[in-house]
Computed example of a mutant assay.
Amino acid sequence: MNSEDKALRRIGLGMMLVFWLLLMALGVWWFERLIETRQYPNANMATTTGEANLPITLQRNASGHFVAPGHINGEPVRFLLDTGASLVAVPGNLAERLGLEPGASADFFTANGRARGYLTMLDQVGLGGVNAHDVRGSINPGMHGDTVLLGMSFLHRFDIQIRGTQMTLSPAQPL
């Protein structure tokens, strides 16, 4: 085998290596997108602060939860809609980033038991173009992560209907 054949063989091996690396990178990218879509199917939901797009329809994620983008005081957040929560519950680390002021100390009874936190008032909470002002909330130092539990202090504005994998939020009918 002469030196020209060796050079061509090295180029061929290099090109094959580049091909397989690109193919693996494409596979990893595709798989990550698939997982993200299954865990956060409402990621592309409109988060504008303008006119509401009612009704709001959300898809259940692979874990069985309704998760959607929104905002608190103009800052983007990820909401987990929780009809069992009385207040909008914000993790302590996220509350600091959002500049929320802790109010009175309070005990909260959660699925994980009793937790101590602080009451607070959220100037503005938005989901799907629906904006509410002066929403009661809580700051929960024991909550981890950046997901906010969107409780009934915001959700009471809607008639909530769950059918299969969809939750539909429609304007609440006056009593």
Rank of each mutant, 00 (worst) to 15 (best):
N2V: 11
E4W: 13
E4I: 15
L8A: 15
L8I: 10
R10Y: 12
R10W: 11
R10L: 14
G12K: 15
G12E: 15
L13D: 10
M15N: 11
M15S: 10
V18M: 15
F19G: 13
W20N: 15
L22E: 15
L23N: 12
L23K: 14
G27H: 11
F31M: 11
E32I: 10
E32S: 14
E32M: 14
R33N: 14
R33I: 03
T37F: 07
Q39G: 04
Y40C: 07
N42Y: 05
A46P: 06
T48L: 04
G50W: 08
G50V: 00
E51C: 06
E51M: 11
A52P: 09
A52T: 01
A52E: 01
A52W: 01
N53W: 05
N53A: 05
L54F: 09
T57P: 06
R60A: 02
R60Y: 01
A62P: 08
A68S: 00
G70M: 02
I72H: 01
I72M: 03
E75P: 01
L80S: 06
D82Y: 05
D82E: 14
G84R: 02
G84Y: 00
G84C: 02
S86R: 07
S86P: 06
G92C: 05
A95V: 05
R97Y: 02
R97F: 03
L98I: 07
G99N: 08
E101A: 14
E101I: 12
G103Q: 05
A104F: 09
A106L: 08
F108I: 00
A111F: 10
A111D: 12
N112M: 06
G113F: 03
R114I: 11
A115M: 03
R116H: 13
M121D: 08
D123R: 08
D123W: 08
Q124H: 10
G126A: 15
L127G: 06
L127V: 06
V130A: 14
V130T: 10
A132S: 15
A132K: 09
D134A: 12
D134F: 09
R136G: 10
I139C: 04
N140A: 09
G142Q: 15
M143W: 00
H144L: 10
G145I: 08
T147Q: 14
L150H: 06
L150V: 05
L150C: 07
S153M: 05
S153H: 11
F154D: 06
H156D: 13
H156A: 08
R157C: 13
D159H: 11
Q161P: 05
I162H: 12
R163S: 03
G164R: 09
G164Y: 02
G164P: 02
T165G: 14
M167A: 11
L169P: 04
S170Q: 09
S170H: 08
A172V: 03
Q173M: 07
P174Y: 04
L175S: 09
